[in-house]
Amino acid sequence: MMLIPCPWCGPRNETEFHYGGQADVSYPAEPQQLSDADWARFLFYRANPKGIFTERWNHQAGCRRWFTIRRDTTTNEIFQDDSHEAVTR
């Protein structure tokens, strides 16, 4: 049971959160201009590293905010970014 640091509510059990997958996969600025291959890359391709992964979580049972953390996928150790702005936006 990971203890996930919500940037607002503080550390809470992982059961309060919903996983949001890889962070920084931005919605393309002009989707209609993308090739099928590039659009497919946005839709379906995600990293799956062994080690540090930057990922999104939603504090579903709490403040409902989305945020980003870095987690070591081999140990579940979490490295949190500093500012609220950095993690929520």
């Binding site: 919903h18 931005s26 919605y27 999104r56 939603n58 579903q60 409902r64 905010r65 989305w66 936006r89």
Partner: peptide, 15 residues
């Protein structure tokens, strides 16, 4: 209901 709200919040808060 809950899934839609979270989904909408995702787009509003992050994109």
């Amino acid at each position: 209901a809950a899934g839609v709200l979270e989904w909408l919040e995702d787009w509003l808060q992050t994109e």
